[in-house]
Design a protein around this nucleic acid. Sequence first.
DNA 1: AGAACCACCTGGCAGC
DNA 2: TGCTGCCAGGTGGTTC
Length: 272
Amino acid sequence: MPELPEVETIRLGLIPRILNQRLLGAHVRESRLRWPVPQDLNEKVQQHTLQGLARRGKYLLFDLGDGGLIIHLGMSGSLQLTPCEHPPGKHEHLDLLLENGQCLRFCDPRRFGAVLWCLEPQHHPLLAHLGIEPLAPEFDGQVIYRLSRGRSVPIKIFIMNARLIVGIGNIYANESLFLAGIDPRLPAGKLSRKQSHALAHAIQETLHRAIAAGGSSLRDFVNEHGQPGYFQQSYAVYGRAGKPCRVCGQPLCHITQGARSSFYCSGCQKRR
DNA sequence: AGAACCACCTGGCAGC
DNA sequence: TGCTGCCAGGTGGTTC
């Protein structure tokens, strides 16, 4: 599933290719996404110029000057630049038609994603309650320590809560906690200052590494060129239940937290 | 306010 | 080989 590094990779890849392009319209083939795609999307975007592409958490914000698009890739979404005449596949639900003859094609087999129009995307209700960006300079151990006081939820659930910290999905939550040497079951409020700093550092390190590697966390993820990413090959714990820890050799554990799989090493990751 | 749980969706895969 | 049924997972919403 596209996590923050994948979304950032897509954003960085698209910027030089679509910025300052005029939109000739939008072609919607399937409007039933997480929320319905606006019926009049074609009229909304027509003749607008793509002036910017920002990101908030995993939301991509396309600045069209007078309004903008909010796109979320959900769990299986991707965006590809492709010639307009290229026939769309089964799950390629909509095209944004560019003046250069290409289209930005939105594909999402599971339809958990979203394509919305908004006059002021930065102020959309969906973005209003989002927490701190883990890649922002002000994100550090002090922030984690302060946010986690008085909270009893397991630390893994805590770092995946987008109202507190945005963009950390299941895979990178598992990887970050391993790198920080923290047991995913540890109540957030029990985190020491030292652990908070280790965790902040581990989260940033994990995300930066994934972005540098081209960012991918799902077999069917493709970037804006249609190439698969390769970060999934270097997971330390995710999906490796029963296999030996790459650090200490102990078999890795698998538990369920908040209806999601957690993977950890009981030797390397401590509860205090 | 915080925590727990549910709904949405479909490709992929295990089991028969 | 083909069918059934379960799982994964981000996020907003509901319930406790």
